[in-house]
Design a protein around this nucleic acid. Structure first.
Length: 804
RNA sequence: GCAGGAGUGGCGGAAUGGCAGACGCAUCAGACUCAAAAUCUGACGUAGGUGACUAUGUGUGGGUUCAAGUCCCAUCUCCUGCACCA
């Protein structure tokens, strides 16, 4: 009788052994494989079972790559430690964020170590470490020098609760991504990053990424490329022209009015004495509205300016209106309105009784009593002068060129992507390394003076005025200009949390380099990331920013690749009962600590995968872990009871062994990790059954132990040694399935009449169609009455006799 | 509104167009035990039958096919993303 499975003892034993003799070693000859987790924010709350799942998935994949292919695995971990929670904690408790962050890191690190992943802590990085953010600042300086970082005063998204400006990507449905407060607009002088310069490459290069289609599509939609034309409309009685952007230049003849955003530079100037008050009031009221108000307005509002523009194509006089359904920062902030062929224009025209002119025939004719806009670009042009009779779909493409030729406008491409608002009016972030000199303008802090350290402050409280708490430290703010030496002032805003996470993955492989961000030699050897694993919530934030940073660093020669993450996997969330997100406030947080103590790390690792498909959300239910524990116990007993067996593998056993190799490997390659586990259970049951009847051989036992090693490293290592091996199971080679040994000599075939199974027979695997059908008919016996219309034989699976 | 994904036992979930419900949880019965736990064996969609079995069954309604959870059309529900981008 074998000794019982004592998970605590063996897990502790092997953990010590692996620490003393690491199994993942770079000998300079092995191929590298870089498997990365999205690094965590070191929150005070610690890890729950949902965090675990992502880390287990990446570790299983890493260990699999180590065994299958003999890779040296780069599997680092670090801390995304700037950000609001630590700062808010500082405000409340008066503890410096660096201190609380350090404590949280220590705590989470010990929790992460319970996973027994391959993390190489020598590579650890921390975004708040001056030796790290020195390079975050260095990248900013380079961007400034390349003209990609610029200062601009404009109305930006402002979170009144966080008291800071936000990037577009951080505003979700008009609310702050972090605290869910309604976002307002505030006019502020901001540092901006010209991510739009990369819009085209960010879009086009999505094609070369092995990423979930969903994420690629989200990024493509976010970049939002559209093709169209700008058309210049002269304004009656004025010198200036108003330029509109349209994707439907084919409908130019149908433009019966024009609408400008209330923030348009010419908006106020277009009023006439009779409309002056109303126009000014509308502009003022629009400025007070939050994004949410704007989005929630069900009915369109607007005001007529009193001025008219001239349709450059047909000379028609079109009234100019102001309305907040036109966005100031997309296109030109002004649109031509074709109510017959655009839903929004139609609604507006109906409300304000503006004429509607149809220019595309629907089903060959003009619509009487139009009740909704006809928005398809298909049909023949009507009421369109020289364009009459053309196909609108064709004209849509040709019109921009025609307009450009006639000097009325130009062909253009537009993007929804906006430049990245990069200033934050908060304390706990990287200081932006810029000095404002009255004479020389904006001057970057010289490279040799980086890092520009974040100074101590007395109050972390955000000021709410649009300045960060740093502005209050006179002795820090006042400095001298590095160019002319005259008195100058430091930039007091800090960077957003995304700054460090946009490039941290490069630093891991050379984290102690004090000369460069990363040496070219190490970058060439270890980068880019082969597999990136994390939640889908960063689809357009972190993942877009990282691609932008990588392309920039590529362009200035730091690295020679321009996409950071070759392959991406998004794991689903683990939720509490009924799909409710795990949160302290909901009281449904499941901590891994107790489960590890009671069932062991190996059991929890396996159960994390067994709860459901890794890419989908799964509800956590503690009870299921018993099944996993039983499985490991049964396997434990099987191996130890037969470790000294002299049995030779039967043909049947060879079949089982090779099929197990094949199934487990294939499911693993498909990332179907939940069915890998059910596969292990299935084969385990089969092996136990066979061990009882005919005995089991050592080679089969060794095979299952190697296959299980990436999932349950401790028990696998223990059983591996029990089977007489001297070196670690992680130095073994992943077995390969022998296709011939897998083959059946006999097949079980269902015999059906009209698609309903009436018998099951066993026939030789090499039976011909005729032999099989004959055997099937025999099995059916006297059920087989009536006219046989058709006989279907699917080799090795089905015989179907169709009768009338 | 637009786009994408999903709907299968009491539950989590399996099924290259080929015997639906693998694997696990829970439940029930049996063995072992003085007893319980653990372990082992078995049953476990629904309806009917003592029974081998029969019928029925993958959100709903149609269709294609010898054969549909899987493909096509329509429809309902839920989830995710985007949302006045002209």
């Amino acid at each position: 009788m074998a000794i019982p499975y004592n998970h605590r003892e063996i897990e502790e034993k092997w953990r010590k052994e692996w620490e003393a003799h690491p199994v993942n070693i770079d000998d300079g000859k092995k191929p590298k494989y870089y498997c990365l987790d999205m690094f965590p924010y070191p929150s005070g709350k610690g890890l729950h079972v949902g965090h675990w799942r992502g880390y287990v998935i990446s570790d299983v994949w890493s260990r699999y790559k180590m065994l299958n292919g003999g890779h040296y695995i780069i599997h680092p971990m670090g801390w995304d430690a700037f950000g609001l929670p630590a700062e808010n904690f500082a405000i409340k408790m008066g503890v410096h964020p660096a201190k609380s962050t350090a404590e949280n890191i220590a705590n989470i690190k010990s929790q992460i170590n319970q996973i027994a992943a391959l993390y190489d802590w020598d590579m650890e990085v921390n975004t708040t470490d001056p030796e790290f953010y020195r390079w975050t600042q260095w990248i900013f300086v380079k961007m400034f020098q390349e003209g990609l970082a610029y200062e601009k005063e404009m109305p930006i998204n402002w979170c009144p609760s966080c008291k800071t400006g936000l990037a577009n990507e951080e505003v979700v449905n008009g609310k702050c991504e972090r605290c869910n407060s309604d976002v307002t607009k505030k006019n502020l002088k901001q540092w901006m990053l010209k991510i739009t310069k990369y819009a085209d490459r960010l879009l086009a290069d999505l094609d070369k990424l092995d990423w979930p289609e969903k994420v690629k599509k989200m990024q493509a939609d976010w970049i939002g490329k559209s093709y169209g034309a700008e058309v210049d409309f002269p304004v009656e009685g004025k010198e200036e022209k108003i330029t509109v952007y349209t994707t439907r230049p084919d409908t130019l003849y149908g433009a019966t009015f024009m609408v400008l955003a209330p923030e348009h530079a010419m908006a106020a100037a277009l009023s006439v004495p009779e409309t002056k008050d109303a126009v000014e009031r509308y502009i003022y009221e629009a400025s007070l509205k939050s994004n949410v108000d704007r989005l929630q307005d069900k009915e369109k509002t607007g005001v007529f300016t009193g001025s008219y523009a001239i349709n450059p194509l047909n000379g028609a006089r079109v009234p100019i209106w102001l309305s907040d359904y036109v966005l100031a920062d997309y296109g030109t902030g002004a649109i031509m309105c074709v109510p017959a062929h655009d839903d929004r224009d139609f609604e507006f025209a109906k409300k304000f009784q503006i004429p509607i002119v149809q220019v595309i025939a629907k089903d060959g004719k003009e619509i009487e009593n139009m009740t909704e806009a006809y928005t398809e670009a298909s049909g023949v042009m009507i009421n369109s002068g020289e364009w009459n009779g053309m196909e609108s779909a064709v004209l849509k493409k040709e019109a921009p060129v025609m307009i450009e030729k006639r000097g009325l406008g130009r062909k253009t491409v537009n993007y929804k992507l906006r430049d990245w608002v990069f200033s934050r009016q908060r304390y706990w972030g990287e200081p932006i390394p810029i000095i404002h000199c009255p004479k020389c303008g904006c001057v970057p802090v010289p490279e040799e003076e980086l890092p520009l350290l974040l100074p101590e402050v007395e109050s972390y409280q955000p000021t709410g005025t649009g300045e960060s708490p740093l502005a209050a430290i006179e002795e820090w703010v006042n400095t001298t200009c590095p160019v002319c030496g005259e008195p100058a002032r430091r930039e007091t805003n800090t960077m957003p949390q995304w700054a460090g996470s946009s490039w941290y993955f490069l630093r891991y492989v050379d984290n102690k380099n004090d000369k460069e961000l990363v040496s070219r030699e190490k970058a060439d050897k270890y980068l880019p990331v082969d597999m990136y694993i994390g939640g889908v919530e960063h689809a357009v934030l972190h993942l877009l920013y990282s691609r932008f940073y990588t392309k920039f660093l590529h362009d200035i020669g730091v690295i020679d690749f321009d996409e950071p993450f070759v392959k991406l996997f998004n794991q689903g969330m683990i939720t509490g009962k009924n799909g409710v997100k795990m949160a302290k406030s909901k009281g449904n947080v499941v901590s891994p600590d107790d489960l590890v103590r009671d069932y062991g790390c190996d059991s929890l690792r396996i159960y994390e995968l067994f709860v459901g498909p890794p890419e989908l959300d799964s509800e956590w239910d503690d009870r299921g872990i018993d099944g996993v524990y039983r499985f490991l116990t049964r396997l434990w007993k099987l191996v130890l009871d037969h470790k000294d067996t002299q049995t030779k593998a039967s043909k049947e056993m060879l079949k089982v062994r090779n099929r197990m190799i094949h199934d487990i490997t294939q499911r693993l390659e498909n990332f179907s990790l939940n069915t890998v586990i059910s596969g292990f259970m299935e084969y385990n049951n089969k092996m136990i059954e066979m061990a009882r009847t005919e005995g089991i051989d050592r080679e089969t036992l060794k095979t299952v132990v190697v296959l299980l090693a990436p999932f349950a490293p401790h028990i696998s290592e223990e059983l591996w040694r029990a089977l007489g091996e001297e070196t670690s199971v992680f130095h073994a080679t992943w077995p390969e399935a022998d296709k011939e040994a897998m083959a059946d000599t006999e097949k079980e075939v269902a015999v059906q009449i009209n698609g309903k199974t009436r018998a099951v027979i066993r026939i030789p695997a090499d039976s011909t169609r005729e032999e099989a059908i004959a055997a099937g008919k025999e099995a059916l016996g006297n059920r087989l009455s009536g006219n046989v219309v058709k006989e279907v034989y699917v080799p090795g699976r089905i015989i179907n006799i169709v009768m009338k």
